[in-house]
Deep mutational scan, measured.
Amino acid sequence: MPSETPQAEVGPTGCPHRSGPHSAKGSLEKGSPEDKEAKEPLWIRPDAPSRCTWQLGRPASESPHHHTAPAKSPKILPDILKKIGDTPMVRINKIGKKFGLKCELLAKCEFFNAGGSVKDRISLRMIEDAERDGTLKPGDTIIEPTSGNTGIGLALAAAVRGYRCIIVMPEKMSSEKVDVLRALGAEIVRTPTNARFDSPESHVGVAWRLKNEIPNSHILDQYRNASNPLAHYDTTADEILQQCDGKLDMLVASVGTGGTITGIARKLKEKCPGCRIIGVDPEGSILAEPEELNQTEQTTYEVEGIGYDFIPTVLDRTVVDKWFKSNDEEAFTFARMLIAQEGLLCGGSAGSTVAVAVKAAQELQEGQRCVVILPDSVRNYMTKFLSDRWMLQKGFLKEEDLTEKKPWWWHLRVQELGLSAPLTVLPTITCGHTIEILREKGFDQAPVVDEAGVILGMVTLGNMLSSLLAGKVQPSDQVGKVIYKQFKQIRLTDTLGRLSHILEMDHFALVV
């Protein structure tokens, strides 16, 4: 994948999101292997301009796509893939009243899908469409860049269908997702969380590099694949309309690839034109409109599966009536509230959605109805927002919020430890010299600072030695090549209790 991002070429006709291997024109390309080798690009942008032909009021008969309808489940399912879809609609009884809503608040519980998330729908649909058009064949390999849930859905379907599955996901995604993927037989590649989507090191860039190296491999490409919004247009939206008897006044959905909100909203605009569509985008993402909503100094966020630093091709923002931004604290607070007060075992993005819903639905009156999409299960986040310690460490809970008995030293300040200034190293000294210094002084790690004293990161003896043994660096290389740029900081005025929580999850903390 090139470091400079080429513009994806656009073909003359058809839909841009065809499933299957992508040609340089962004659509299915038939021909000899030699032709494909000559024409197939190194990668295709996940934010390529959409060429979708959908228009409100256009006859369904003019759609270029294969459409399906929700099917009634048999008493005995032939395999677990038949437990994807037909998820329950559940009334939220307490939270709406707590925040003064007059309307009825309903939750579409997508964590009841077989793999635990709304992404099971698009995973199965992308595979079925690729099999139907002859792209996927027995023994082929599926590769997908994902925040985890699409990966789980694909790995689940691949396990049943017999495909090899490789999932490329950023490091910030939970260990629970990784464990589930491994249990399903998927191979996992992790990428830096802070890598831009168009960087060769991003999950998108690495996935395309693997595709170019592995024979008979395919990126189904949830960011561009029409099967993504079509899955929701054909099934999720129809289920909502049936469950609500066609009567709903507002739908609120958090947005990642945009397939969920695009597919549902398009069908609702056709069948229930008075329904307002509300999009939820986390602070630090750029999906919301108008652009002024996205202006923030924050560039990272903890909530998973929603928000991006690019506009995915499948996201149709014209069908969203209003956007709201959400933050991590309210997302996790509301997710825990949904679990504790409503018994809905949902993930953090569901918290984002409901946090926005109780604001947006203030305009609705008694007798009206708001539906929220709860995308995934708490299963993926047992060591994250479900953990009091994690919430404390991230600053989303305060010590006084917890009532468990603490040891005698818990409320003492870090400054009472009488710490001395640490050994520091410059980023320009060599790895070999740094190892000598650390061994001589008896230290395992040291902060790396520039000549102005600005902290650049941390270097550890173990990481340097393993990097040297693996051949990633040489003793003569500058130590700046092996620094940890993500590390926890703590102030002298913070409590030892807070430091204790940090050290339970990290090997060190830097006192500043």
Rank of each mutant, 00 (worst) to 15 (best):
S217A: 06
T193M: 10
P16V: 02
L184I: 10
G26S: 15
G148F: 08
N113T: 02
R18S: 15
K177W: 02
R276F: 09
E37R: 08
L248A: 07
G148A: 13
P16F: 02
T236L: 07
E128H: 02
N225G: 02
E110F: 05
G148T: 04
L230F: 09
F112R: 02
S147D: 02
K271P: 05
S254Y: 02
A60F: 05
A157F: 02
F99D: 02
G259C: 02
S175T: 15
R164Q: 02
L77I: 04
I142Q: 04
A159G: 05
I166A: 02
G20A: 13
D238L: 04
S32H: 02
G151S: 07
G185S: 02
L77Q: 15
M89N: 06
H17W: 14
K98G: 12
I44F: 12
S3N: 15
G259T: 02
S227L: 02
V10Q: 08
D221V: 02
P74V: 14
L230V: 14
A195L: 02
A183N: 06
N194G: 05
K108R: 02
I142L: 09
G259A: 06
M169L: 11
E128A: 05
G258N: 07
M169G: 02
L156F: 06
V160D: 02
R224L: 04
A207D: 07
I80R: 02
S3H: 08
K98Y: 07
I95Y: 02
R58E: 15
T260S: 10
P170A: 05
I219Y: 09
P2M: 15
A207F: 02
T236R: 02
A183Q: 06
K102S: 02
I122A: 05
K269Y: 10
S227M: 07
V90D: 02
F111A: 06
D129N: 15
L101V: 06
V252D: 11
P200I: 08
G259R: 14
K211H: 02
E37P: 15
G100I: 02
D133S: 02
S202T: 08
K177P: 02
N225F: 04
N93V: 02
T68W: 09
E9P: 10
P21Q: 02
I80L: 05
S217R: 04
L136R: 02
K137F: 10
R45K: 05
Y163W: 04
L124S: 11
K94C: 14
I240H: 13
V255T: 08
P273A: 05
R58N: 12
G258I: 04
V160H: 04
R58P: 09
M89L: 15
S202G: 06
A130I: 02
V206W: 06
K137N: 15
H232C: 02
P192A: 05
G96A: 12
T5M: 02
S254Q: 11
L181S: 08
R266P: 02
G205M: 02
G162F: 04
S32T: 06
T236D: 06
K177T: 02
I44V: 14
S175V: 10
G274F: 14
L241Y: 15
C244K: 05
D179G: 09
A186T: 06
C275N: 04
P64A: 10
I95S: 02
E176H: 02
G162D: 12
G263D: 02
E110P: 08
C275I: 14
K97A: 08
S32Y: 10
L106S: 06
L56R: 12
R121H: 02
